[in-house]
Design a protein around this nucleic acid. Structure first.
Lengths: 207, 207
DNA sequence: CCAGATTGGTACGGTACAGTACCGTACCGC
DNA sequence: GCGGTACGGTACTGTACCGTACCAATCTGG
């Protein structure tokens, strides 16, 4: 039934549309522009996705799955809290501030009133996975007696959110071209210090 | 030169356009729709604002000034750290999660690539003022010996960002209709507890 | 009360876009 | 090799929209 070219064509359409939508937003990209980029004809796009909305929805869920892949393989269990938070912060920044993530974020936030499913898909992908990963770690660490008792999920939220707000917003608004690696490091160092004190962990020696 | 009706007309146009843009976004609102809402003719709008872009830009800076007014009068100096953070958290949530703020946020984030000035105006208004307010307090508190030394601005960012991320994003994405006051209270309580430990303040007695 | 400017209402020009129709062509299973 | 299906290319329809033009009504300052 499925010709080998079908899946590839569908993918090619999604890729081209993704690039355009991420760059310019939903309303500013015409179906003609997508056709001009991917080649072929409008007929094909409408055959695969029904209409422009359908293409957009398919594209968003496709992207949401794709962007968080570096996050799902992260395993913190067994690490000391300072090491775990450091590793988490680094991985988190890598995903959070990647150009594709920022553009997807902007796109989903902008269109979520008209595409509620896109909002749901994005949230369960982007922040939710990170929260859960760190939350699992905190549950383990608390069980090991490394940190004081407290809601693991709330702590994960607090920690990751404290890394997110300012720098992410400035990137989203185009006020920062390329985030300075050193400043990110300084920011996460401070967040880790405060947070470790707050959850009752004293690091053994020098970091 | 200025007829008394001129300023009022301008304001009325801005108000009507604001409501429509906040609700549906820039591209989905036509100038005709604004005219239909405010009355009058397109001629008037183009006389005042030049074109649709000009109207949008004027509207954004107008809104940015308006939204943060509850924040500028906040004075924390003299309070104990736990009280100050509590007061700050309450005022911050009130502004951050107000429907108008969320819609403005969504709008500015969406359009910032095409309206860089809007991004700048929003950032200097919305988060920047709160950061500075809390930062000033931390500087004072450190000087009074109430908390351990540390960069006041970074601490302000960390604390406010830890309150922001998750709940704000869920509201932006339409996953939460009305934020639950009790849950907000619980969230800020936990953030305050952790943060007070992290900056070396032990509260005197019961909160 | 009056000249002059501003506004309201409507219509219009030009353009861009979503979605469809049509036709020729290349590729598929058989 | 052959019939059927999907694809590429282009043209087309209907619509929506930005910005302007025109004219009558209204208001302003003197």
């Amino acid at each position: 039934m499925a010709r080998p070219s079908q899946a590839k064509k569908r993918e090619a359409i999604l890729d081209a549309a993704t690039e355009l939508f991420l760059e310019s937003g939903y309303s500013r990209v015409s179906v003609d522009a997508i056709v001009a980029k991917v080649g072929g004809s409008k007929r094909t796009i409408y055959a695969y996705f029904g209409d422009k909305d359908g293409l957009f929805s398919a594209l968003i869920s496709h992207l949401c799955q794709k962007i968080v892949t570096p996050m799902v393989s992260l395993d913190l269990i067994g690490l000391a809290p300072d090491r775990a938070l450091r590793k988490m912060a680094d991985a988190f920044f890598d995903v959070l501030l990647a150009p594709n993530t920022l553009e997807l974020h902007r796109l989903v936030v902008a269109e979520s009133p008209h595409f509620p499913d896109a909002g749901r898909a994005f949230f369960s992908a982007a922040p939710s996975i990170s929260y859960r990963c760190l939350s699992d770690y905190f549950a383990w660490a608390e069980n090991e007696g490394l940190i004081t008792p407290g809601s693991p999920y709330n702590r994960a939220r607090l920690f990751l959110d404290s890394l997110t707000g300012d720098i992410q917003l400035r990137c989203l608004l185009g006020l920062v071209d390329e985030p300075d690696k050193e400043k990110l490091r300084a920011l996460s160092d401070e967040a880790i210090d405060i947070f470790l004190d707050g959850i009752g962990y004293r690091r053994a020696s020098l970091p």
